[in-house]
Design a protein around this nucleic acid. Sequence first.
DNA 1: TAGATTGTTAATCGATTAACAATC
DNA 2: TAGATTGTTAATCGATTAACAATC
Lengths: 221, 221
Amino acid sequence: MEHKTISKAVISRLPRYYRYLGELLEDGVERISSNDLSLRMKVTASQIRQDLNNFGGFGQQGYGYNVKYLYTEIAKILGIDRQHNVIIIGAGNLGQAIANYANFEKRGFIIRGMFDVNPQLIGQVVRGVKIMNLNELEGFLKEHDVQIAALTIPKTEAPAVADRLVKAGIKAIWNFAHTDLVVPEDVVVENVHLSESLMRLSYRVCSMQDEEEKEKAKKES
Amino acid sequence: MEHKTISKAVISRLPRYYRYLGELLEDGVERISSNDLSLRMKVTASQIRQDLNNFGGFGQQGYGYNVKYLYTEIAKILGIDRQHNVIIIGAGNLGQAIANYANFEKRGFIIRGMFDVNPQLIGQVVRGVKIMNLNELEGFLKEHDVQIAALTIPKTEAPAVADRLVKAGIKAIWNFAHTDLVVPEDVVVENVHLSESLMRLSYRVCSMQDEEEKEKAKKES
DNA sequence: TAGATTGTTAATCGATTAACAATC
DNA sequence: TAGATTGTTAATCGATTAACAATC
């Protein structure tokens, strides 16, 4: 497949298409037009067609898109038809929340190990996965072929652990630590900065309140 | 303050500026130019100046920006100088992870209650917050002035609970459920779709691998 | 064949970057 | 005053939307 560089915005939207198509599939819908999908998803039909055409012509004129076919094609594009081996660094609540999320396995993400420094956690088993001592990390990665590491540890520890992960051959870091990681260019970092998300929420709540107060003031005058 | 509609892209970047300024402050840096900050953050100096000027002139020609002043001004813009009362719906691992994140309180987000349907969890205390039965939700919200609800429950339950929250006067939902919520236009929803984040990671890992294989093939030919 | 809907080109819109006059 | 750096306008770039010919 010709993978020219597809814009980040397009990639961002693919998982959402995938989710809606999965729901349509569950509802037994066989085909859908870009227009019908656009109404459900509240995006323009034009954007849907443009986005999909980055990867090929999945539709048929006069018919629309076959839901099941498009669903599996997007899975291929996203690489969730393959298996990914994952480890989780940090077995606190967040790490365990990830480990317990059943759908990850369904999408091909298999959790091979969890690591922590807390002696209270080491040895415990979460969803069939044993929590190991962080100092066993390098040994474990020598024995097992793991590409992805989820990093759910405090930001103070994150850069050092990220370095160790990269040295041990990890190719992607799913970073929940509240800091930016510096890694070689062939290593992928996907950030989930929850505190930033919360601040955006805060901004929007406050500006909503401000607006409403303004409206109110207008009415009163 | 004149809050014209600021673009979403700008708002998205503010928390990151805030984080870097906080680090500079900790390091005892008094002032910084847009250029120096741009080098640290790997964005253009032009963008920093444009972004900040949406909210007012915080800098000084020939001097740059006063770190402490800019830090507190961004806090004001984001609304994290005020207090927000928060409840958490869903006291599983993810809900508890949020409850345990100490910095949230530092940013003015005070957790007033947690709710769940699991009898094993109800009655437990997490970081001084009692887990209540979800059927006590409406009563609780009548007694307490809460604006924000974090929703860490399965997607099947999310829409119904979101409706209840809106009816009970909640003004913002921090949505971790893997579904889009439909709410009135004066209610804010900030989505954290972890599965979508993981799929983006998957895409990037795979296309990185593809690239490397192509490079390799090229060398061999 | 007629109707529907895609794939794709062209037009518009918005966001980013560059440039520079204003000013500390 | 000279140097530095902002605030802001203008230029560029990229992403979204509109339009329509191609075609099922």
